[in-house]
Design a protein around this nucleic acid. Structure first.
Lengths: 340, 340
DNA sequence: TTGAAAGCGCTAACAC
DNA sequence: GTGTTAGCGCTTTCAA
């Protein structure tokens, strides 16, 4: 097997076997081409016999269309993100595009990987890690490669963006916490800023401010469970001054919950109400029953793919910004009120 | 912008601007090519000015090398799988390959998607969903496209495979449960067979048999938390007859735990010991502290990529089967013994 | 409906 | 070191 030099079978081979020209085999594999059913059958038969497959890369070179798209994501091993990416990948495939998956944690990596995608002539890309620099976006613009950003902000124009309505999100968190009486609020947010996560926390604080209620700010190391668990210790110390906390991700909220219950014997929601964000699967698990804010990952991903595809087919249209509303999920870390 | 017909800049344009031949621009972008530093700089400058990028697809057509590989995975939104895929994707990129991500739940889909990958001239593929049919594998063999299967079995020869040592896994589960005295065992496994998940459960049962201990079998709808939660109800009914249960995935175990604690007030591990499988992040969370069996997803993914790359560079070598040992993780759903 | 010829963007031989 | 030529596998005019 190793010494046999395998030449891939090309349209030429098929043409020869079928006794037609190469153009004919091309036509046989092109929907709606001018070819008789008879010839098509003949070609297909020859192709099957030889194990011929159209080389889509060569086809793309000729047609100047690429079916490749890029998905660049960070924290793929996180419940929310993995869901988002799963749906995005599926939707791409459903529409005839093939997603190249790039996972990148650091901002520089992201830059480099996106840049690399241009070499593959991608038809578009979906970005849900760090936002690309304006240099990259400019390049994408000039190359006519549509970019769609999910919950990322970018300095210069060009990309379509799908984003959660941060103002509404902050207000919702506020109302979920205060509707049943919480008055001494806190918010937990990651140390390193992120458009979406820091954004919702800031929006929450502004809403508190507008309503003249004081809010304590805790920062944690990242958006993870462990970070929440760690900051939960600090929260425990201040428990007498707080009766409602907004955790900027569910993962953080779950960590906080575990720490508070384990080390401080805190009664949730009686002593402290907790609201998370994302509504990851784990938030609904029996040990947690976390009240949270649902951002629809499936819808985001689907919309992103739709926007990208639309822009591929219609490169001229102006960038779109699509704002998504979030919805409350009341479980058991907020107190019941009689309206419920 | 929409009316401007953008012609992509090619090596020809760069050559013209730099006053050299197209070969020179090709050489300028090829490491180790015979070209003076002077010319290289000149070419690179022209390229930068024009915004030129090598078209890797066209390059691949010529060199007959593809940097594209396929990763086909199911249940990407699951903690274990998303971790596996994240690492696999990263390792591919690190080695200069670009992973096309295909997510597929149903077996037919898998077939179809894998088949499609051949059209993209992929250099190899990693499969961690359903195993491909022998027809597909035969095609891959004849096309010299290396396939590596992670925890999947396949009827015919060709693919490399990375797999957990199922016998050891079953024995380990048995010993973790019995070391501290459990005598009336049970196992929970999904209704639909899966090589790896059903395999470890079967192996556990065989080990029980060899040791003359009786084992009850419960089946659940899938490998998910919810499936575990549901079957937890049945388990509750039989609680008097069982003092140790092996759940074939952590997700199932977590569901069982929540159900048993919530509806049956079961004391774990005093009344019932539970062992899971995978060691997903959630197993270590404070509310669960699940004792489990660790299969190293990172190592699996890395090994898979290495095997694939090795085979790309050395297509002649015989298929390899790499067996991975699993390790125990004792947390709080098994009883302590004095050795611990 | 079919075939011939040109060319997508690139690299590899070969000559100089 | 550098340029010329040929050709990767495919589709697409254009004539027939």
């Amino acid at each position: 097997m190793s010494e046999k030099i395998r030449k891939s079978v090309t349209s030429f081979d098929v043409a020869k076997l079928a006794g037609v020209s190469r153009s004919m085999v091309s036509r046989a594999f092109t929907d709606g081409a001018d070819i008789s059913e008879e010839s098509r059958a003949k070609v297909k038969a020859a192709a099957a016999q030889l194990g011929y497959r159209v080389n889509h890369l060569a086809r793309g070179l000729q047609t100047r269309h690429s079916e490749l798209v890029g998905i660049v994501a960070s924290a793929l091993d996180t419940p929310f993100r993995s869901r988002q990416v799963k749906i995005a990948a599926r939707e791409c495939i459903l529409r005839g595009y093939r997603p190249i998956l790039l996972v990148a944690e650091k901002t520089e990596e992201v830059e480099q990987l996106i840049s690399m995608l241009f070499n593959y002539n991608v038809a578009g890309m979906i970005i849900t890690s760090a936002a690309p620099s304006s240099e990259i976006v400019r390049e994408a613009n000039s190359l006519d490669v549509p970019i769609v950003l999910i919950n990322r902000e970018c300095d210069i124009d060009g990309p379509d963006v799908i984003e959660v309505d941060l103002v509404q999100a902050g207000e919702l968190a506020f109302s979920m916490l205060t509707r049943s009486g919480a008055k001494r609020l806190a918010v937990i947010q990651p140390k390193y800023p992120s458009f979406s996560v820091t954004g919702r926390a800031n929006s929450f604080r502004e809403c508190c401010l507008r309503n003249d209620v004081d809010v304590k700010v805790f920062t944690c190391a990242s958006q993870s469970y462990q970070a929440g668990f760690d900051v939960g210790g600090e929260l425990g110390v201040s428990l007498k001054d707080i009766d409602g906390v907004f955790c900027s991700t569910d993962l953080i909220a779950l960590g906080v919950l575990d720490r508070l219950r384990g080390d401080w014997n805190t009664k949730v929601p009686e002593e402290l109400e907790i609201v998370g964000f994302d509504n990851i699967e784990q938030a609904g698990w029996g040990s947690y029953n976390l009240s949270t804010i649902y951002q629809n990952a499936d819808e985001q991903a689907t919309a992103a793919v739709e926007l990208m595809v639309d822009r591929i087919k219609n490169p001229g249209r102006a960038p779109l910004r699509q704002r998504q509303l979030v919805t409350p999920v009341f479980r058991k870390t907020t107190r019941n009120t009689h309206e419920l």
